[in-house]
Design a protein around this nucleic acid. Sequence first.
DNA 1: GAATTTTGTTTGACACATCGAACTTTATTC
DNA 2: GAATAAAGTTCGATGTGTCAAACAAAATTC
Lengths: 169, 169
Amino acid sequence: MHRKEQLSATHEMYLKVLYRLGQQDDVARVKDMAKGLGVNPGTVSAVLKKLEQAELVHHDRYGSVTLTSDGMAVATCVIRRFDTIKALLTEVLGLDIETAEVDACMMEHAVSPATVNRMERMVSLVMAGKIDLSALENSPMPFDGGRCCDCETEGVCRAETEVESELHS
Amino acid sequence: MHRKEQLSATHEMYLKVLYRLGQQDDVARVKDMAKGLGVNPGTVSAVLKKLEQAELVHHDRYGSVTLTSDGMAVATCVIRRFDTIKALLTEVLGLDIETAEVDACMMEHAVSPATVNRMERMVSLVMAGKIDLSALENSPMPFDGGRCCDCETEGVCRAETEVESELHS
DNA sequence: GAATTTTGTTTGACACATCGAACTTTATTC
DNA sequence: GAATAAAGTTCGATGTGTCAAACAAAATTC
């Protein structure tokens, strides 16, 4: 995998959704991708064209869409990032699953390999009971008034524009 | 701070850079922002226009640029996110500062308030010595061959397109 | 197997963030 | 204070990701 030019977050999402669709149903359709991405079918057509040029998918006109092996490699990489971040947020930091999924879906496009590796390591040690996080459970939430981000109860404010489009999972 | 429509990552970056410039020099100039963002001055002019409409900055034509109080609130929020994520990556996960800064700069636009709060809590407990991470230091890196992301030694591969433009700090 | 419905594509438009180049203001220098 | 330099703005263009609407192909139904 020596893909020099970084893929956009968008392209990564398309590949991820495609991968997931391939897992549940056997074939993926434009319609399903559009639904999964919360996006217009016309948009999917357009993006698929680029993805095909990059040899990440192939797509029979009016037919099904599948990942190439390169596309598959990228997709599994993105999914690994997602899973790792989600696990970190839930298992280590104690966030609820919904918030964790929304955030992981945005963060998955922003982490370097080194970071993912460290996160993964942390998660596995915590889950193996080798790191004691009881201090975290008992500590109070940080709260000091004036900060715009202190709205833990509202939780998903940053994500709420995102929620209706079902990009995440 | 009830800002319903989410700001773009770009706008957040502009505000953050502006804040930092305001700290070191007293006045911020378009030139400085352009430099700090790795972007053309014309672009700064254009974006500033939007930011001014959103009442996040004011900008005297051909003159200096300053944050409004709303802009200041957003900027400090973004910076808090950056600092928190950076601290998590270095203090908790043990990443080097360079990688942590690059990643934090991308992730700062992708985390919900709830997540930042949890991260902050975690960081402060670790730094206060209330959580023992020695298991992490001694554990081997995850490595299982076929994965595209297993390139810890190259570290910043995902970020390297980003590095030359000095967006991060 | 013709009509209808569903699915997919194309087209034209838009917003965003960007550039480079032409132009305008402001600042500096002589 | 006129000439020059530096900083800022505007303009036209580009690429990306998106939409809605018009159109085309495939699938379903009768």
